[in-house]
């Protein structure tokens, strides 16, 4: 039975406990934000501040396996404001683009359904990186390999939940059986809808189902998720067919030009003789 996480973004407070817990458990180095002196500039300059609300990393990366996104929505007359938060990570897709692309079997799915990069197998070819339809998996210059969230592979295989879910003080991140989490999500959507909110679950159909899925109260794009993610390998058959047809066409062109000319030259030869 696959394990996963349900992220109820409506009760996230943007505290980033999950980001910190993830870094600590997985031993990922931090890129501290600070003010520092820059030669030739009289005032202190900000390093590692995105300038985008309270967002401190901007995206997922080889050392940021969790990323809390802050969305500030302000209406035109600037009277109403809404602040949306969403804690993002690898979705552990059922049809995972990264896993499909890997030529070394470094990326594997475990018995609990999570997708893990084996660090001692990865060769750093970087093919998985553009193959993830969510821009999750990243290349680490430090290790020369691809890295991403493992769904706390070591913890969940020892009966614990993920570090981020454990740290989350509001219960916005829940770890468990995907089937149970889906029931919880459906109940929560029904509850919100009865109050007139336009709530939706993101991750039931995408990539054959995401083991880490979300409850959104606005379109996925608002939360930085693709509206219609396509597992890129689904284009493979068509691409191969078109390429083979072209190869046949080139073969035919070669055949015709080499054959035809052959007759042509032999005729010329006859004229000369």
């Amino acid at each position: 039975m696959p394990k996963g996480m349900f992220i109820d973004t409506t009760i996230c407070t943007g505290c980033k406990s999950c980001q910190v817990a993830c870094k600590q458990w997985n031993g990922l180095s931090a890129e501290p934000a600070h003010f520092g002196r820059k030669p030739g500039v009289s005032y202190p300059v900000a390093h590692n501040f995105t300038g985008d609300s309270y967002d401190n990393t901007g995206s997922l990366s080889a050392t940021d396996w969790r990323h809390v996104r802050f969305v500030e929505q302000i209406d035109e007359p600037r009277t109403q404001k809404r602040w949306l938060f969403s804690s993002d990570s690898c979705k552990h897709c059922t049809d995972a683009g990264c896993l499909n692309a890997c030529p070394t079997k470094a990326i594997q799915r475990t018995d609990l359904g999570n997708v893990v990069v084996q660090q001692d197998t990865c060769i750093g070819c970087k093919f998985c990186i553009p193959s993830c339809p969510y821009g999750v998996i990243s290349f680490s210059e430090e290790t020369g390999t691809a890295r991403k969230c493992t769904l706390c592979n070591d913890r969940i295989h020892n009966g614990l939940g993920t570090a981020c879910a454990k740290a989350c003080p509001t219960g916005s991140i829940r770890f468990g059986e995907v089937a149970d989490l889906r029931k919880r999500a459906d109940a929560r959507v029904a509850q919100l809808k009865s109050k007139g909110e336009k709530a939706q679950v993101y991750g039931y159909d995408e990539a054959d189902g995401l083991n880490v899925f979300y409850l959104f109260v606005d379109g996925p794009k608002v939360y930085g998720q693709p509206e219609h993610p396509i597992v890129p390998q689904r284009r493979l058959v068509l691409c191969s067919l078109v390429t083979i047809l072209t190869a046949l066409g080139i073969g035919a062109a070669a055949l015709v030009s080499f054959r035809e000319r052959l007759n042509g030259t032999s005729e010329e030869g006859r004229h000369e003789s």
Binding site: G97, A101, F127, P130, S131, C132, P133, G135, P229, I230, P232, Q233, R235, L236, L238, C239, S240, L241, V242, T243, L245, T246, A247, I250
Partner: peptide, 23 residues
Amino acid sequence: VLLNVTARPFWAATSPLMGALFI
């Protein structure tokens, strides 16, 4: 084909012609 079966916008949008062009 390798470029076409990624999710990068330009490579994805030019699917399925990149392999043909390279041949």
